[in-house]
Amino acid sequence: MTDTNKTPLVELRDMSIAFGGIKAVDHVSIDLHAGEVVGLLGHNGAGKSTLIKCLSGAYQADSGEIYIEGKKVNIENPRDARAQNIETIYQTLALADNLNATANLFLGRELVNRFGMVDEGKMEAETRKIMARLNPNFRKFNEPVSALSGGQRQSVAIARAVYFNAKVLIMDEPTAALGPHETQMVSELIQELKAQGLGIFLIEHDIQNVMQLCDRAAVMKNGQMVGVENVADVTEDDILSMIILGKNPKKAT
């Protein structure tokens, strides 16, 4: 179990963001330690993706503070987040459909040679290496990702997030499009990365997966945080009732 007394790797304090009249995230606080996996659960539209997008720089929170290793940071755009070694797998995958797997993997961080030109060969070789680990059956290196299946696209998005030595990994339903074997490989990957000391936010609807992979589970409803519990201390039913009722059973009893 993680040592919760140490300074958290990431701390989101009192985050709020509204779209028009909708409070998508409403005064939410959560933290994440190194070597820990925190599961985020909740109904569709609960605000999970919106919350992590404030951390990944996709959105700017209306209010709230972000601390990385105890230091307050300003994350105003995705570049800021990447600079803090925060990597994200978005629910929408965020791939440029007209580019191939290699170009997508290195998008925004292309390897260049000494003349400042993109080093296509080296990048493709690196892509082949990481894909061999994540999805050994992957062959379509020279086709635009629009020609890939949903699962293949997802493995490209995963490869992109894990290639660049992340400290914090955000995974928004990373296995939604994957087959059972690939899902198993991602589970193993998560455990491996956790052992390496990464902190991982995992948004996941499958409670069994959460119980198996996560140290803590955080449940959101209507933009608010219902509760954060150690997975070891609760049952699947407890979490389910938190999701459905929007109440923390332990606090109620």
Partner: peptide, 16 residues
């Protein structure tokens, strides 16, 4: 090319 393919993805990849 990335912006043309998917402007949101390009922005999320840190492209201004």
């Amino acid at each position: 090319f990335a912006i043309g393919g998917n402007p949101e993805a390009a922005a999320l990849a840190g492209i201004n």
